[in-house]
Amino acid sequence: MPHDQPDLAELVRTANEFLANVTPRLEGQDRYFAMCTSFLLDIVQRELVEWAPLETDDDQRLQALLGGNKTDVQNLTKELSAAIRAGEFDDRLDWLLEELIGHVTSKVKVSKPSYIDEATEN
C-alpha cells in the first residue's frame, strides 16, 4: 500500500538532518551517542536504497555458494557458516576467499562505504 509523502528514505533523512543540527550543541557522551545515531541512520538510508530489492546481488552470491539450493534468505549466512565449519569448502578455499571478499564488500558498502576507498588508496 503506497503511503503518503514522505517515503521511508525521506523520513530517515529528516530525522538525520535534525540530529546534525543539534549535535554541535551537545557535549561528552551525548554528543558521541548523537554522532553514533547519525551513523546508524546513514546505514538505514543506504540499506533502503541498495538492499531494498527482495533478492539482492549478495543473496544470489550466497545462494550460488550453497549450490543453488533454494534457501530462505534469512538462513543463507547460517547455512554457509555451517558448511565452512564442516570443511565442505576446504578443497577450494582460495576460490571461497574471493567470493567472501565480494560478500563482505557488499556489507561494507552499506555500513561505511568510505572504508573501502581509504583502504585501497594506501
Binding site: A34, C36, L40, L97, V104, K107, V108, V110, Y115, A119
Partner: peptide
Amino acid sequence: RSPAFAACGRNTSLMEYDLLMTIA
C-alpha cells in the same frame, strides 16, 4: 543498550574486510 553498541554491530563488516583482504 546504546547507539555506540548498535554501531559496533555494523562495524563488524569492516574488520571482516580487513581480515579477508589481509589473508588475500
